[in-house]
């Protein structure tokens, strides 16, 4: 009986909260927020907050065409794998008061798991057989190479700061350290790293100006060109989830992660309330990070050429992260 309850609980956390459903909903909401605020920054009214959700449901209702030159299995499986891996990854982040599986993967694993959706996108695009997609996957891969260096430097800086002379890739420990010493963002040696991370997020998510891979004006949305219907919807969902995931990761690494713990009134009520409050606070933080690193940057810049993008990440952003790492290494 207990086992069944436990299994049900796990299933709940995998599929609903904080798993797939929750992540999707929040991701779509974040994406909608991004679009809305972007529009307001451009003095437009902008789409409704639920626009990404509408887009997603609309795509579910469309036909799915598989081009004759495509490899059907890979073409259709790629978006599903991407979404599933993202949904599962959420469970490894200790960003909620309730983080069932955060002990089961550390930073390096997160780094690699993050590549799976990108690889899924690349494989799907490649499998579609379109030459536009060929260009798109090339760019996607270069973008990945570009942001991976700053990302690992940021991770190492965080690990060194929180772990001292011990190996510390565990997210739980990073969160615990921050609970004790205050969020990492407020340690001045980590500020460059946080900035670098803020630059990594839009590249990882693929928003302008770092969206060379999916430039719809030049290469017809690159890897996505042949996708239609539900698979396309899943890719759009992936982007939305990634948005949430990356901002949440930022919150975990630099803003202390698990929010607050409040106990009010009866225990059960307090638990429920604190869960709700945690979620709300996290959401607010994610919104702020999204605003800062994606919307604002998007509003004031134009798309970078791929070679410039690569250079930017390996010089400016990696430089920022490296400064942090060296400062931390020097014990600051």
């Amino acid at each position: 009986m207990e086992l069944i309850l436990k299994a049900l609980g796990t299933l709940f956390s995998v599929l609903i909260y904080p798993g797939f459903l929750f992540v999707s909903a929040v991701g779509l909401l974040l994406a909608g927020f991004d679009r809305k605020v972007l529009a307001r920054m451009q003095k437009r009214v902008g789409p409704p907050l639920l626009q990404p959700a509408y887009d997603f449901f609309k795509l579910l209702g469309k036909e799915t065409l598989v081009p004759s030159r495509a490899n059907k299995a890979v073409f259709l499986a790629a978006p599903v794998i991407g979404t599933a891996s993202l949904a599962v990854m959420m469970l490894f982040l200790p960003i909620f008061g309730r983080a069932p599986l955060s002990l089961r993967a550390d930073l390096i694993v997160i780094l690699y798991l993050l590549t799976i959706p990108a690889v899924a996108l690349i494989l799907g695009g490649s499998a579609s057989g379109s030459p536009f997609a060929g260009i798109g996957i090339s760019r996607e891969m270069v973008v990945m190479m570009a942001y991976e260096l700053p990302l690992i430097l940021v991770f190492l800086a965080v690990a060194r700061k929180t772990g001292g002379s011990e190996l510390c890739f565990s997210l739980e420990r990073i969160v615990a350290w921050q609970a004790e010493h205050g969020p990492l963002l407020f340690h001045w040696a980590m500020i460059p790293a946080a900035l670098a991370m803020l630059f990594v997020i839009p590249a990882e998510v693929g928003t302008q100006p770092f969206d060379a891979a999916e430039a719809e004006t030049e290469i017809c949305e690159g890897p996505l060109i042949e996708y239609s219907g539900a698979p396309l919807g899943l890719f759009k969902l992936n982007t939305a989830i990634k948005m949430f995931l990356m901002t949440a990761l930022f919150c975990t690494l630099f803003l202390g992660g698990s929010g607050v713990t409040v106990t009010l009134g009866p225990i059960w009520l307090g638990a429920a309330l604190s869960a709700l409050l945690n979620t709300l606070i996290l959401l607010a933080l994610c919104l702020a990070v999204t605003l800062l690193c994606m919307t604002l940057v998007h509003a004031v810049t134009a798309r970078l050429k791929i070679e410039h993008l690569f250079r930017f990440y390996w010089t400016v952003v990696a430089g920022l992260a490296l400064i942090s790492l060296i400062l931390v290494w020097l014990g600051l």
């Binding site: 409704p48 536009f132 017809c220 949305e221 396309l232």
Partner: peptide, 13 residues
């Protein structure tokens, strides 16, 4: 875009 209109890059979209 208020009404969700968006220019897509590919006819499949």
């Amino acid at each position: 875009e208020r009404f969700g209109f968006k220019l897509a890059g590919s006819p499949r979209h």
